[in-house]
C-alpha cells in the first residue's frame, strides 16, 4: 500500500494512539481477507481436482447450484468436511472467516478505545458488539 497518503503530523500522544488503532484495524481486515481468500481459492482448486468432470460436464451444475444442492452449513459439518479434504468445506470455512472478520474488527476497536481511555467510544463500540450478537441470536431463533 505504498500509495496510501501519509497521515497528517500527529499533534499529541492521543493522535498517535488513534493512528495505532487505524493500523490495527487495517491489519485485522487484511488478515481476515487473506485467510478467507486462501481457503476459498484452495477449496475451489481442491473441488476441481476431485471432480475433473466439472471442467467438461454440462449436467453437473444443477446439482451444485440448484435448489437441491448439498453442502455443509453448520460448524461441525464444515469441520468434518475439511477433515475429509472436501473442497466445498474449505470454501465454506473461508466464507465463515470472512463473516467473522467484521466482528473481530469491532472487538479490536473496543480494545483500542479502552487503551485510549476514550470512555464515550468504548461505550459506543460495546453497544455495537452487543447489538451484533443480539441480532445473531434473534435471527437464529426465528
Amino acid at each position: 500500500m505504498s500509495d496510501a497518503p501519509q497521515p497528517p503530523p500527529a499533534q499529541d500522544a492521543a493522535n498517535d494512539k488513534f493512528r495505532q488503532m487505524e493500523l490495527w484495524i487495517s491489519t485485522v481486515l487484511r488478515i481476515g481477507v487473506g485467510v478467507s481468500l486462501f481457503l476459498v481459492l484452495g477449496g475451489t482448486i481442491l473441488s476441481f481436482i476431485h471432480h475433473p468432470d466439472y471442467v467438461t460436464s454440462r449436467t453437473e451444475l444443477s446439482q451444485l447450484v440448484g435448489p437441491e444442492a448439498d453442502f455443509p452449513h453448520s460448524l461441525p459439518a464444515v469441520a468434518k468436511g475439511m477433515w475429509n479434504l472436501q473442497g466445498r468445506a474449505f470454501v465454506a470455512a473461508g466464507l465463515l472467516a470472512l463473516i467473522a472478520t467484521p466482528v473481530m474488527r469491532v472487538l479490536v476497536s473496543i480494545i483500542s478505545f479502552v487503551y485510549q481511555r476514550d470512555r464515550a467510544y468504548v461505550a459506543i463500540t460495546t453497544i455495537v458488539l452487543a447489538l451484533l450478537l443480539f441480532s445473531f441470536l434473534v435471527g437464529k431463533t426465528q
Partner: peptide
C-alpha cells in the same frame, strides 16, 4: 458489520452455497 449481523443466520439456514458464494 451490517452484513455480518445477518450472514450467520443465512449460513445456518443453508442459503449460502459455497459453489456460488465462493
Amino acid at each position: 458489520v451490517t452484513g455480518a449481523a445477518s450472514a450467520g443466520v443465512y449460513f445456518a439456514r443453508g442459503e449460502i452455497d459455497p459453489f456460488i458464494a465462493g
